[in-house]
Amino acid sequence: MLKGKVFKYGDNVDTDAIIPARYLNTSDPAELAKHTMEDIDLDFVKKVKPGDIIVATTNFGCGSSREHAPLAIKTSGISCVIAKSFARIFFRNAINIGLPLLESQEAVDGINAGDTVEGDLAKGTILNVTTGKKFTAKPYPPFMSTLIKAGGLIEYTKEKVKTK
């Protein structure tokens, strides 16, 4: 179960906002996490607690292919990102590294910053604990579910090369 307080953002949160390129001279997740969301929310890293959830509107994670972005979010303690839509490369990267994503228009509209929210990845449900409202996330295609169940692309690939 994914549960925590919500940080809410708007449209088109880009990868430069999630992790500015000036910090890309390292690929150490802990170092990257120190600068998560820095250019749009200086307080994020001070406030974020393990389990917390990012909620955003459309096209979350647009821009660069940098996997440093979902890696920084995941390492900062965020348990799940809920958005109306995700940028394509960010979506792949997050699934590949095991950062849970849930897509739901209604949930995003029905959640405010600071609310406590629970996400259930297996059931695809989102509960706003603060208001008691429940939402359904867009189901993953079967292949994506396989990837998620395997624990990400590296675990999936490990199995694949073993059986070859």
């Binding site: 292919s65 990267n93 590949n96």
Partner: peptide, 18 residues
């Protein structure tokens, strides 16, 4: 098309990508 580093690692190992 652009992808992430993990996609590239998997493709470098297997020669395939989803």
């Amino acid at each position: 098309t652009g992808m992430g580093s993990t996609d590239i690692s998997s493709a470098m190992a297997t020669g395939e990508i989803w």
